[in-house]
Write a protein that binds this DNA or RNA. Structure first.
Lengths: 185, 185
DNA sequence: GTCTATAGTACGATAGAC
DNA sequence: GTCTATCGTACTATAGAC
């Protein structure tokens, strides 16, 4: 049986990615679990603590996923990485980096620190994977792997944001173009 | 003398781009103008009305700026367009499309509609300018002008968001790379 | 250990003062 | 025409019930 504690983080994550960190409340979560809002405070004493837990959860989930991919080719791993954004899109949200990043100025220090760690972890993994794919001649790009990683995460992030405004399937379009770009020789 | 009404929109715009639409209050604006929060309601009856006014203000400002550039070369106009993001960055905010976009799910319909119009206007202008620059052989790109416009606005948007997390000058870096890309033959 | 009743504050908005 | 006093609601959080 999945614990209330875990259910809370999962729901919070969903709310943050769809509505934003400053537009969800403890009551939103409590209602979905048929509890009073104060019950959430037992599991996560403050909103900052819950926000931090959501970021840590996202980090752990990311590291778990990449471990599962370790037998796939590096090129395939990049494709699987782009699928994460597609999955965010399917459940009506943007990526957690974009959601927290847009509210960055309002976040307490403990959340900012955690977010920086997450950003570093993601870009390190993607840089390494791109580099390894390049060594295998399966992936090509001109700039440094770190800059290519920045370009990929940045364009996927904003495709999710803009998609809701433009009503076009920008995420698939940009993902396709990124893959295409990495395949050109 | 600049009217209170105009001062309110300017401050709201600044707050929305730095903190987000759901993280600023009428009191924040009132305090800066030495007024009570209710005074803001006289000028803008609801937060939705103020939000809508900020979007309209941004649209008008954008159209005014592009008019001033009309004698510059199309390539120069693209460079000037990228400067808008740099200016947002200098006063501590992200672009208005990113700020509203991240909170899109929480916005009232009147704001969503206005935001879509703004998005269309910006991408139309940029597409046309890119196309004209291409015709003059001053700019080169492979995809359609509309897709190139998407790529530019998307990557500039997220560079502003990520910059606050990564503490790196990503905006300048990405702007430079975009210009470089458009210059390659 | 888990949750509820309730406090205290800040929000957006209305009615009415000047 | 412009602004303030004030309302009702919803928020985060604490103290204490079960």
């Amino acid at each position: 049986m999945i614990s209330t504690r875990r259910k809370i983080v999962v729901i919070a994550d969903q709310l943050i990615r769809s509505r934003g960190y400053n537009a969800f409340s403890y009551s939103d979560i409590a209602n979905r679990l048929n509890l009073k809002n104060a019950a959430i405070h037992y599991h996560y004493p403050s909103k900052a603590a819950l926000g931090k837990a959501v970021i840590i959860e996202s980090r752990e989930k990311f590291l778990e996923q990449t471990k599962l991919w370790k037998d796939a080719s590096h090129k395939e791993q990049v494709r699987l990485f782009l699928d994460i954004y597609q999955n965010n899109r399917k459940n009506g949200g943007i990526c957690f980096m974009g959601a927290f990043g847009a509210s960055y100025a309002t976040l307490p220090e403990e959340m900012r620190t955690e977010l920086k760690v997450a950003h570093t972890e993601i870009n390190n993994w993607l840089s390494k994977t791109l580099e390894a794919g390049k060594d295998e001649k399966a992936i090509t790009f001109d700039t440094s792997a770190a800059e290519m990683a920045d370009l990929i995460t940045a364009s996927m992030m904003s495709s999710l944001i803009l998609e809701r405004i433009s009503s076009r399937d920008m995420t698939s379009e940009i993902a396709r173009n990124l893959i295409k770009g990495l395949e050109e020789k």
